[in-house]
Amino acid sequence: MREPDDHTLHAVTDNPVTTACLARIEPAGKAWTLHWSTAGHPPPLTVTPDGRARYLNADPGVPLGVDTALPRPDHACPLSPGTTVILFTDGLVEHRDHPLDHGMNALAATAAAHAGLPLDEFCRALADRHPSDGHDDLAILALRTPA
Rank of each mutant, 00 (worst) to 15 (best):
F122W: 07
L141M: 12
A69N: 15
H130W: 10
H130T: 09
D67F: 14
R54M: 11
P63E: 04
A139V: 13
S80C: 07
T8W: 14
D50N: 13
L56Q: 04
H75N: 10
C21Q: 04
A76C: 08
L22I: 13
P99H: 12
G116P: 02
L143I: 08
V47L: 05
L143E: 00
E3T: 13
L87V: 11
S132I: 08
P99D: 14
P118Q: 06
P118E: 10
A31N: 10
A53D: 01
T83D: 01
D6V: 10
D74S: 12
L64N: 00
D5W: 13
W32M: 01
M104L: 15
L100C: 06
V66H: 03
P81Q: 03
A58W: 11
P4G: 08
A111H: 00
M104N: 02
G65A: 04
D6H: 12
L64D: 00
C123G: 02
V93N: 01
T145Y: 08
Y55S: 03
A69W: 12
K30A: 11
S37H: 02
P63K: 07
A106E: 08
N105R: 13
H10K: 12
A142M: 05
L56F: 15
A28H: 09
T48M: 07
A108T: 05
L107I: 06
R96W: 11
P49D: 03
E26R: 14
A112D: 00
P42Q: 02
